[in-house]
Design a protein around this nucleic acid. Structure first.
Lengths: 238, 238
DNA sequence: CGCTAAATTGATCCTCGTCAACACCCGTGG
DNA sequence: CCACGGGTGTTGACGAGGATCAATTTAGCG
């Protein structure tokens, strides 16, 4: 098959214009793709804040993160952003119940993802094994979304942040070399965290500082996080 | 096959004791089941507030609501409850990514549901058609949970309540006779709504009163709701 | 009818959002 | 080497929105 196609979405420039937002829209995506390895999927590279697909785009693939971090989010008419999920290496995203995406996906950091052809519409692959995997991923996504909803409902800023810290550190440290000493590297900004938790950057920052004062965590650098007292954190997450 | 089995969960009495909560635990479930029609699934009857399955129970089935309303929820250690979803006639629930339920399901009103044998663990039925349907339902659930999370993140009480009203009225009026005159019948209490939206009953009540004063809705009775000005509601939901 | 739970309404408090100032980190260029 | 500048993060002061506490009113049901 031909190698250097303009893959996945070259219509990114033709977005419906959004209401005036405080958000500087991310730089255009750079999809320098190689041909991928046969039936396995195509490898795509994205620079920070570039768009993988947009809200409203037709579903053409689902994706798996190879390296870096990806976020899915929604932009609201008042210019606010809400982040639905962060995806770390090994995790899959891009499923939809319908034919079009209902969220947009962006690279948080420099990211490499593999795209697997999938036409959406709840279609299952013919291959039984692949169908099985896709179903498992969808159920996983479902659970993740449910837990996120429960996290956002009636919980204090402290509980939200503590729960987020536990979750992200566990998921990151499973993959990351060099933790325990300086902790893990957070790819996302305070704004990303705030938009994920339904808080403001100020509250996120304050709460992280509070957790550091209480010696539940350490912040060797703004985006480096070490878990000091897991029990205290769990208590804070209630 | 034998008709009057004690179906689906007769171990309901042997729950792990919960921390002292302001919640009067619901009356024990009444699973007066008939045999169901062959391979289609078993029909189960539940009285208001009775438990369909508990958080932690092994997955044995997924379910479809025939009549009445079902809620899935989580009880927190401080005695607070969070509702993940309401299920109306025609809607399916009870999927899990693992072998055990991570939420509990309860009847909101008198309810009839059909249980379909399913062992959880992301297993797909052999039958291709059934597998297809199950996958579609799972993706649907995923979308619902995502939308719920977005609803709970950084939105005002007014926006939450207005969005809830639109959603529930649309879903109910599709199925319910006798609307437009008195509006639709809400099966859920203010507490249910509050626990779904991450608000208090007082705020829900106040906000509904406000919407009524603004003539966006009418409340002929506490649990009867008529949509008067959809445009105003949509504007309130932002 | 009278009892009880559910819903509404009011008064007060507190968390978190908002606005603002400042510190920090890194580039670039003098 | 330091000056500058912009983006990012931190911290403080203040106010608004919703939680909490409390008192009625209404509805449901024996």
């Amino acid at each position: 098959m031909p190698a250097s196609l303009s893959l996945v979405h070259d219509d990114a420039a033709a977005r419906p214009p959004f209401a005036p937002t405080p958000w500087t829209r991310p730089a255009q995506e750079r999809v320098s793709a190689d041909a991928g390895h046969g039936s396995a999927g195509r490898t795509l590279h994205f620079s920070p804040d570039s768009e993988i697909y947009a809200d409203g785009d037709e579903c053409q693939s689902y994706y798996r993160v190879v390296s870096g971090v990806v976020r899915t989010c929604k932009f609201r008419s008042d210019g606010r952003r809400q982040i639905d999920a962060f995806y770390l290496p090994g995790e899959a995203f891009g499923f939809e119940a319908g034919a079009r995406h209902t969220l947009c996906a962006e690279a948080v950091s420099e990211a490499v993802v593999v795209a697997f052809r999938w036409r959406g519409q709840a279609s299952l692959p013919d291959d039984a094994r692949a169908a099985q995997d896709l179903f498992a991923e969808a159920l996983n996504e479902m659970r993740r979304a449910q837990e996120h909803a429960l996290l956002l409902g009636r919980r204090s800023a402290l509980q939200k942040v503590a729960a987020f810290v536990i979750d992200i550190v566990d998921r990151l440290s499973a993959r990351q070399r060099r933790h325990d000493e300086d902790g893990v590297e957070l790819a996302m900004s305070r704004q990303d965290i705030a938009d994920y938790l339904g808080l403001t950057i100020e509250t996120v920052s304050r709460t992280l500082s509070l957790l550091e004062r209480d010696e539940a965590i350490a912040l060797p650098a703004a985006r480096r996080l070490r878990l000091v007292d897991r029990a205290a954190l769990r208590a804070a997450a209630a």
